[in-house]
Design a protein around this nucleic acid. Structure first.
Lengths: 265, 265
DNA sequence: CGTACTTTTGAAGTGCCTCAACGGTAGTGG
DNA sequence: CCACTACCGTTGAGGCACTTCAAAAGTACG
């Protein structure tokens, strides 16, 4: 009987640190997930460290709420993503995590996680690789919100979602599930829901995307990529099995004003 | 002879994972830093992994340049901060690092770093703690840029700089060095330099800050903190020796719309 | 078949940007 | 010592991207 690997395994294969047995061990971890409905806090800012959570299916997010009630979504959690791998080291969560759709969530006891992460194993290396990719995505979000106008911000988000779902086998070449509300997207991008609605119309009219019935389609990936200068390197996808999709930048950036480089003597 | 500990040691003491000997070992690493002038790229996007860099003195930053030449500063690197601890695991740098002022930079060979980080030691734990705090700061920057208006953004940045310098012994209770140009600050905050200049005037006129001759003074920390809802928990400073400065929020946020919590059965 | 939540569209306001000019300061070389 | 250059900070005027407020149509659910 052939079993499809868990999203966690599919994602961590991109790290290059896993072998076949590791994949099987990770799949075993993901047996028996728990179903959680949409709009539920999985962990809350300030909670004491408990079991570690892993999204096996569905869409969730990290977020912070400011005192005036505004919410900023700090990142998306898709199948194969850990919610709070780091909680035990930091000892206190500095943000919350909520489901955006119904989710299948795996809970791992701290003890299991410590055994996997503290020993110098291939799996530990792959876990840290995953955490570092998450950090890289954070940085790209900062640049996205800080520098791009609304339409490009949205376009950039859609490309990321498609690629991240693709790497865990949940998307085909240019279409995927996309169940976000306008409010969700506005909180990810630092915009208002009203403005997201208008910008979405622009993107549709420009034939860059179609989005309806929770389904996203990017009919012309090259044009969309050029439109928002999407450069997929920040996702650190392995070059190995990426033959089907070509998402890299056309070349290194050549326009920046030159800054001298510090080279070893 | 009494030697003041290195910024790295002072910072990692907040983790709670170090003992006295560990501190001495870290201080030894920081001997013989290298002097680098202002405006130099320490590492560049796409560079192959080389030695790991650590700021021992001065101000530097992570940044990304978009194809149209705009630069987003992704984070500040202050004394005690690692520039690229993660480069070997990810295998390719997804952003660049540049000095903002003349800096003293320590270079550590990959081999040394691997020995320190891959083994299950107290120092390895403290290093990861440091990386996770950096990640937490990233998230706060995202919320800052995404949700706050310009004046609060700037005020928030100043508080962070003061506290981060304070934790490595480079600031007193409410004043510190602050050598940023308007352009630097605009690139950190997703604003233009012109607008930063105007907002800075507002903050001065409101007697919330004084900033001149590269010196920042926050004469009324409580008012400033209230002004921009600064909540220092994201810096994960140890509660232990923080008696001198009280920067926490007045209480957990109570204004957010309620979201149900997912509790273990 | 109501109730609650989305999405859409309009009209008006504003925070921030762009363009432009000018003053201050530091470093350089005559 | 004074020119000259380069960069940084300040201020003004005008414009645009995005927000706010408001109303109505579409959609999901018990």
């Amino acid at each position: 009987m052939v079993v499809t690997p868990s999203p966690l395994t599919l994602k961590l294969r991109h790290s290059g640190y896993l072998d076949e047995d590791d994949g099987a061990a990770l799949d075993a971890l993901c047996a028996r997930p728990r179903m959680v409905e949409a709009g539920i806090d999985v962990v809350r800012e300030g909670d004491p460290p408990g079991p570690v959570h892993l999204i096996d299916d569905g869409f969730a997010c990290r977020y912070k709420t400011l005192p005036d009630g505004q919410r900023q979504i700090l990142g998306l959690l898709l199948p194969g993503d850990f919610c709070d791998l780091q909680s035990s080291t930091l000892r206190t969560l500095d943000h919350s995590i909520a489901t955006l759709t119904p989710c299948a969530i795996v809970e791992l006891p701290q003890k299991t996680v410590d055994e996997l992460t503290l020993a110098p194993t291939r799996i530990a290396r792959a876990f840290w690789w995953g955490a570092l990719v998450d950090e890289s995505i954070q940085r790209e979000w900062l640049a996205n919100i800080g520098q791009r106008p609304a339409a490009k911000r949205l376009a950039h988000l859609f490309q990321e979602v498609l690629l991240r779902l693709h790497r865990v086998g949940r998307a085909d070449a240019h279409a995927c599930e996309c169940p976000f509300t306008l409010s969700d997207m506005s909180e990810m991008l630092g915009l208002t829901a009203v403005h997201v609605s208008r910008v979405l119309r622009e993107l549709r009219e420009a034939r860059l995307i179609t989005l309806s019935q929770r389904r996203l389609d990017l009919p012309n990936p090259d044009r969309l990529r050029a439109f928002c200068d999407f450069d997929a390197r920040y996702l650190h996808l392995s070059g190995g099995d990426a033959g089907e999709l070509r998402w890299g930048a056309d070349g290194p950036d050549g326009t920046g004003r030159s800054r001298r480089h510090f080279v070893d003597p």
